[in-house]
């Protein structure tokens, strides 16, 4: 009951923020508010028990996105030009789409309804009841993500890689700013950040490997890793960071992450299994083979983490090193 109340309030917040963002011409305010928006949605995810999603949302939505958007705002104006199309159009779009969505909820099973087919289906049952015996990993989400639907995750990793490639393609050859943005002349920030960075990295490693047991995994860890470097780049300067993590190497890491993932799959082929069939890893022919699953998941998670980390950092580099037009 209480949870319901909290949820409703949080949703109210969301509506309000969305409307305010929609009406605001001030982009800085919009960025700030969208940071808040993603924090609230992360809270909602937590309440809905989708902790892995909440994790990602917090790391990407509230953290890295805000950073990148700030950088972009820095490169352009923070005032939005008045819209060209009639104002009624966006409303129309929202009403129509919203109408359909609302209509869709009519026959929707109630949230958490145990009778809902989604909870009854063969698929869900298999995930819930067989995943541990098959992979010895308590966090079902990780098993589903990295093994059952590992191919999707390969795809998602590729999406990240694609995004990185896209950015490199578009911004690959930008002139670097002649006058680097001023350093923050604040020793507190500097020291605080410097102290924090190792812990962030450590925490990232924790997230990477703790994924088997709790919320976490390659995606979140990658972002955390990148966040540490981003922090470094912000409090010192991106050029300093480049020395620690040269752009070229980072770019290659993006590719390597995907390759690592795919290589695991292909190795499975060579071992006589299907693509991404971890059972054949460390195999003595038995099935299910939790060891194989385990090592497979570990490796692909590493691949994911690598790609996400490198991609995030690349994005940061590309934007942060770009001079104001």
């Amino acid at each position: 009951m209480i949870i319901h109340g909290i949820t409703i309030i949080l949703f109210l917040f969301l509506y309000v923020i969305a409307i305010v963002i929609g009406r605001s011409r001030n982009l800085f305010a919009a960025v700030m508010l969208s940071g808040i928006f993603s924090l609230i949605s992360a809270c909602l995810f937590v309440i809905m028990d989708a902790v892995d999603v909440a994790f990602t949302e917090a790391a990407v939505g509230a953290g890295v996105s805000t950073v990148l958007m700030m950088i972009v705002l820095n490169l352009t104006s923070d005032r939005e030009s008045p819209p060209v199309q009639p104002k009624v159009f966006p409303l129309l779009v929202a009403l129509l789409t919203g109408g359909v969505l609302i209509y869709a909820t009519k026959d929707m099973p109630a949230f958490g309804d145990p009778e809902a087919l989604i909870h009854q289906s063969q698929t869900t049952n298999h995930y819930l009841w067989h995943s541990f015996e098959e992979s010895h990993i308590p966090n079902v989400v990780t098993t589903v993500l990295a093994s059952y639907r590992g191919y999707d995750t390969l795809g998602e990793t590729t999406v990240v890689f694609t995004a990185a490639v896209a950015v490199m393609l578009l911004l690959g050859h930008v002139r670097e700013s002649e006058t680097p943005p001023k350093l923050i002349n604040d020793p507190i920030a500097l020291v605080g950040a410097k102290m924090l960075i190792p812990y962030i990295l450590l925490f990232a490693l924790y997230v990477q490997f703790h994924g088997d047991f709790g919320p976490g995994g390659g995606f979140q860890a990658g972002v955390m890793f990148a966040a540490a470097f981003v922090l470094h780049g912000m409090v010192l300067s991106p050029k300093h960071t480049l020395k620690a993590a040269p752009a070229l190497i980072i770019e290659k890491l993006v590719a390597l992450g995907v390759l690592l993932y795919a290589a695991v799959g292909i190795y499975c082929l060579f071992k006589g299994g299907n693509f991404l069939e971890y059972d054949v890893l460390l195999s003595h022919g038995e099935k299910p083979n939790p060891h194989g699953q385990h090592i497979g998941i570990l490796l692909v998670e590493a691949g994911v983490g690598l790609t996400v980390f490198a991609a995030m950092l690349t994005l940061f580099y590309k934007f942060a090193l770009r001079g104001k037009a």
């Binding site: 159009f89 966006p90 129309l92 779009v93 789409t97």
Partner: peptide, 13 residues
């Protein structure tokens, strides 16, 4: 693109 979005919503409806 604005129009397109409207069209999309209309079509959806």
């Amino acid at each position: 693109s604005g129009y397109a979005a409207v069209w999309a919503a209309l079509l959806l409806a």
